[in-house]
Amino acid sequence: MSIRKKFDLSAYFVVGPENTKGRSVAMIIKDVVEAGFTCIQIRSKVASARELIQLTREASEVIAQAGKSDEVVLLVDDRLDVILAAKQQGIKVDGIHVGQDDIPVEVCREYLGEDSIIGLSARTHDIFEYIKTVDVSQIDYFGVGPLHETMTKPDCGVDLDGKVITRSFEEISKIAQISPVPVVVGGGVKLIDIPQLAQTGVDGFFVVSAVSEADDPKQAAVDLVKTWKLYATVGCKDLIEKQVKL
């Protein structure tokens, strides 16, 4: 079965060399894969195409060595050229994530084929109308955010007036209800946000610095996955009871 038909967005890690405090990208990816993360995205605005291809190769190898090539999705942000070059070199990469101003989804689908995963950052302004009306025939999930302003990607959530719009849990719940495709939420997400976020009905969370800049990336990843699984499977009454116990 194509991974596109069974991929899991619940724990989604975005990383590039500028996010790791000088530590190995591959080693941190190894940590998060072992911790139970289900999706890895290679994203960098400073790395060259060759560097991105190498990072993609290392990430693919880490996932394979963990025996999770059929479970953990590997995506590259924006760079269709990098993905095509990686595939030509025999690197297993599962798809692309694009923003509104990146290469069009239709072009990505044409070049990557029907088995590849394509994620799209949902438009910041008029997001509710957009999600209800956009043609989703070529995309597999929406990335939504930010939950909080974040220095990792300062332009995340910038609207037409140049202001950053963050999303409340109430708004995120509404987005989850109306979206015709899975939704993953990020942008400044921390461990403390996971219980509420898991209750909104979205399909997962994405993080960068909460793991990549942590003193112990593996433990941070374990805590995020464990907390998501705990709260994504309980009802509101159970949630209150768990919070009281904590």
Rank of each mutant, 00 (worst) to 15 (best):
S2L: 15
S2V: 13
I3V: 14
K5C: 11
K6T: 12
F7G: 02
F7Q: 03
L9R: 04
S10P: 09
F13Y: 13
V14F: 03
V14I: 15
V15D: 03
V15H: 07
E18R: 11
G22A: 11
A26C: 07
A26Q: 10
M27G: 05
I28C: 05
D31Q: 08
D31K: 01
E34L: 00
A35Y: 01
G36S: 10
C39F: 06
I40S: 06
I42R: 14
I42V: 15
R43S: 07
S44M: 06
S44V: 08
S44H: 02
K45R: 13
K45S: 08
K45H: 06
V46E: 14
V46G: 05
A47T: 13
R50M: 11
R50L: 10
E51Q: 14
L52F: 06
L52G: 05
I53P: 00
I53S: 00
R57I: 04
I63D: 02
I63Q: 03
G67N: 15
S69G: 08
E71V: 02
V72I: 15
V73T: 14
L74V: 07
L74S: 02
A85H: 01
A86N: 01
K87N: 00
K87F: 02
Q89H: 09
I91E: 11
I91S: 07
K92C: 01
V93R: 00
V93A: 07
I103A: 05
I103M: 09
I103Q: 05
P104V: 15
V105W: 10
E106H: 14
V107P: 06
V107C: 10
C108Y: 02
R109H: 09
R109A: 14
E110Y: 08
Y111T: 00
G113L: 03
E114N: 06
E114C: 02
L120R: 05
R123Q: 10
H125M: 14
I131T: 08
V134Y: 02
V136F: 14
G143A: 06
P146I: 09
L147N: 04
L147Q: 05
H148M: 07
E149H: 03
M151Q: 12
T152M: 02
P154V: 14
G162A: 14
K163F: 01
V164E: 04
I165Y: 02
E170N: 04
K174I: 07
I175V: 14
Q177T: 12
Q177L: 10
Q177V: 11
I178H: 03
I178W: 01
S179V: 11
P180N: 09
V181W: 12
V184S: 12
V184G: 09
V185I: 12
G187M: 03
V189K: 02
D193K: 12
I194R: 12
A198Y: 03
F206P: 00
F206L: 01
S212C: 06
A214F: 04
D215G: 01
A220G: 05
A220E: 00
A221N: 02
A221Q: 07
A221C: 08
V225L: 03
K226C: 06
K226R: 12
W228A: 08
W228I: 05
Y231N: 13
V234P: 08
C236Y: 12
C236T: 12
K237E: 10
D238I: 07
E241G: 02
Q243R: 13
V244G: 00
K245N: 05
